[in-house]
Amino acid sequence: MRLYLAVAAWQSWAVLKRHLVVYLRNWHTAALPPIFEPVILLLVFGVGLGNNIPAFDWKAQNVSYLAYLAPGILAYTVFMTAFFQALFAAYIRMHYQKTWDGQLTTQVRLEHVVWGEALWSATLGLAYAVIVVFVLGGFTLAGWLELHWSGVIAMLPLLFLAGVAFAALGLLFTAIVPTIDHMNIPFYLVIMPLGFASSTYFPLESDTLLAQAWLVINPLHHLAEGLRLLLLSGVWSFHLAAALLLFGLMILILLPVDFRLLRRRVLGER
């Protein structure tokens, strides 16, 4: 319980603030990926590839590939940003920069460092998602997309929660990978497949039991489909509730595991 309560501790937010200050100092280079990545992806896949794909039926609607892709990129951005921060950036701070070791010689304890990393990853994931929303707004103004915007603001807390959950997954690998080179293993065997096989870039529909089970337990699938129904139809679907539940479970289960593993790795406690 102490671990969960640490989310509200000033130390956790001090860690987040530190990351924010460092990030903002490098804003001119740091802002490039969140702005240009969705623009490029939407242009290359949505417009370029989409022009060669006829509109198709999805949930009883006829949608263009660009319209299908847009909410998927929004979900994918939160997922990848939060996960990447909690894996690579956190690992570098922990292992190479010794930032964590320095923080731990203060009133900041490991539970605060873990929460600080998770909250920061989620903050960045949310910020990048907001940038994607603006990019999608630009596409809408250009007449390339037709989206329902009414529920978008209400989605922000869910996107933040998604960021915390994906960060908890990233921290799990940060805690266990022996070296930075070993990050290729979770990245290419877990994260990339998860990122794509989650209704983000293409529809995933199958009658097989295995595929059905995968979709039921996959929070990114529910997030992508929930956002898609909201943005394309203005419908609040069960997918959003499922995503909320699964993200909550991920946080409840993964963060204590992260903490335990990191306590061993960082402090030498067994």
Binding site: R18, V22, R25, Q97, K98, T99, D101, G102, T105
Partner: peptide
């Protein structure tokens, strides 16, 4: 606390 290893914030 001054640890044996340097633990500055290099940022």
């Amino acid at each position: 606390v001054c640890t044996q290893d340097d633990t500055f914030d290099t940022d």
